[in-house]
Amino acid sequence: MDAHNHSTVTHFFLEGLTNEPRFQLPLFILFFLIYSATVVGNLCMILLTEVNTHLHTPMYYFIRNLSFIDLCHSTVITPKMLVSFVSEKNIISYNECMTQLYSFLIFAIAECHLLAVMAYDRYVAICSPLLYNVLMNYQVCSKLMAGVYFLAIISSTIHIGFMQRVLFCKADVINCYFCDLLPLLSLSCSNTYVNELLVLYLSAFNIFTPTLTILTSYIFIITSILRIRSTEGRFKAFTTCSSHIAAVALAFGSAMVVYLQPSSAHAMTQGKVSSVFYTIILPMLNPLIYSLRNKDVKYALKKTYERIRFS
């Protein structure tokens, strides 16, 4: 990625969340605590699902991958943003910007498709429980995860490939706290029509395809739950899906606000606020969503604590 071959701009200035000096330190402390909670929460989820054999199931295999994606997703964005709160000029080179954008897209897109895979997993578990171990064996789960990363890498590579053709002449202040697609395209001095179409079509594919998969899965899930005669059985079945429903609503809702609306100064400002949620807040919330109401995770945490205590 040689900046000189593509642009007269060799670096960018990230505008960040605010230009008010009085907010810099409080925001640094806030987002440092959020990032620390994100790292601890996701690492704990990864370790718990790895060392406790009763969590070696397809559902927790996907949760472990979700924690890994969330950890990487947040790490791509947050440390650079934290530096911006304590530095005079928030500068990022062209190459660093493209690398950050590429990494961010991979993990953001991978999370969308992984949530769809997790919905399919819940569909099989509830609608075909007797065939669950056959339909969701280790080979199938591995292939599904490979497909998730394949789609993420392909989409991200297409975006970056066309972004390399965009020229940046004079404007170099990105109206965001990281290198994102729409704020970058707004600085271009060349025609970005193809890039904007790609943002629209690929965002629609990577949001609506998983959404359709999730909705279809939950239509069958709800139908199966309603057939369960006992109230306790219906409640137990719904509980296994409630965490996933919450994660899906938060992830896709914020992503739609950012990428499926017309480009404008107001939309980008609104999108910047929404992107804080899915790039920084959501990776912290997911471990809590999947653990607070999950008896298996609580039990694993208790057993792991006892092993550490008595070792």
Results as ranks from 00 to 15, higher is better:
residue 109 I to C: 10
residue 80 K to E: 05
residue 269 T to I: 02
residue 19 N to L: 13
residue 161 G to Q: 06
residue 88 E to Q: 12
residue 259 Y to N: 10
residue 250 L to H: 02
residue 267 A to V: 00
residue 163 M to D: 05
residue 159 H to V: 13
residue 42 N to W: 10
residue 116 A to I: 01
residue 259 Y to K: 03
residue 10 T to P: 00
residue 271 G to D: 00
residue 182 L to A: 14
residue 100 Q to R: 05
residue 8 T to R: 12
residue 201 Y to D: 08
residue 235 F to A: 14
residue 179 C to Q: 03
residue 293 R to K: 11
residue 92 I to E: 04
residue 23 F to D: 11
residue 81 M to R: 02
residue 207 I to P: 03
residue 173 V to F: 04
residue 248 V to W: 08
residue 156 S to M: 07
residue 235 F to W: 09
residue 183 P to Q: 09
residue 147 G to Q: 06
residue 91 I to Y: 09
residue 94 Y to Q: 07
residue 147 G to D: 05
residue 208 F to C: 14
residue 6 H to R: 15
residue 121 D to V: 09
residue 31 F to V: 07
residue 130 L to M: 11
residue 236 K to W: 02
residue 69 I to R: 06
residue 193 Y to E: 13
residue 264 S to T: 02
residue 44 C to Q: 11
residue 219 I to G: 01
residue 123 Y to V: 03
residue 195 N to F: 03
residue 250 L to W: 01
residue 86 V to I: 15
residue 149 Y to W: 14
residue 28 F to R: 04
residue 288 L to P: 02
residue 169 C to S: 13
residue 233 G to Y: 11
residue 239 T to G: 04
residue 130 L to N: 15
residue 274 S to F: 13
residue 27 L to F: 15
residue 145 M to L: 15
residue 219 I to Q: 11
residue 99 T to C: 14
residue 110 A to L: 06
residue 100 Q to V: 05
residue 150 F to P: 00
residue 130 L to P: 00
residue 129 P to T: 07
residue 29 I to G: 01
residue 42 N to R: 05
residue 102 Y to M: 12
residue 249 A to W: 03
residue 69 I to C: 07
residue 57 T to M: 05
residue 160 I to W: 12
residue 35 Y to W: 13
residue 74 S to V: 11
residue 264 S to D: 01
residue 270 Q to L: 15
residue 289 I to L: 13
residue 253 G to I: 10
residue 71 L to E: 10
residue 149 Y to N: 08
residue 294 N to K: 01
residue 15 E to T: 00
residue 302 K to V: 06
residue 181 L to D: 06
residue 287 P to K: 06
residue 201 Y to E: 07
residue 288 L to A: 12
residue 186 S to H: 10
residue 26 P to H: 05
residue 302 K to W: 14
residue 171 A to S: 14
residue 263 S to C: 00
residue 253 G to M: 06
residue 7 S to A: 08
residue 304 T to P: 03
residue 156 S to I: 09
residue 140 V to E: 05
residue 263 S to V: 10
residue 68 F to I: 14
residue 65 N to M: 11
residue 32 F to P: 00
residue 107 F to M: 13
residue 155 S to P: 00
residue 248 V to M: 08
residue 113 H to G: 01
residue 155 S to G: 01
residue 56 H to G: 01
residue 222 I to N: 09
residue 285 L to P: 04
residue 218 Y to C: 07
residue 264 S to H: 01
residue 238 F to N: 11
residue 258 V to F: 11
residue 95 N to F: 11
residue 19 N to V: 07
residue 43 L to A: 04
residue 192 T to H: 05
residue 257 V to I: 14
residue 180 D to M: 08
residue 197 L to S: 10
residue 247 A to Q: 06
residue 218 Y to W: 12
residue 95 N to A: 15
residue 235 F to E: 14
residue 296 D to F: 04
residue 56 H to M: 09
residue 122 R to H: 09
residue 22 R to D: 10
residue 143 K to V: 10
residue 245 I to D: 06
residue 225 I to P: 06
residue 245 I to P: 00
residue 26 P to S: 08
residue 119 A to F: 08
residue 104 F to V: 00
residue 166 V to L: 10
residue 3 A to N: 07
residue 91 I to C: 05
residue 235 F to I: 14
residue 267 A to C: 03
residue 253 G to K: 08
residue 216 T to S: 13
residue 134 V to Y: 14
residue 116 A to H: 05
residue 259 Y to F: 15
residue 281 I to W: 08
residue 145 M to D: 03
residue 153 I to F: 13
residue 22 R to C: 07
residue 187 L to P: 04
residue 293 R to S: 12
residue 58 P to I: 02
residue 28 F to K: 03
residue 238 F to P: 00
residue 53 T to Y: 10
residue 79 P to E: 08
residue 170 K to G: 07
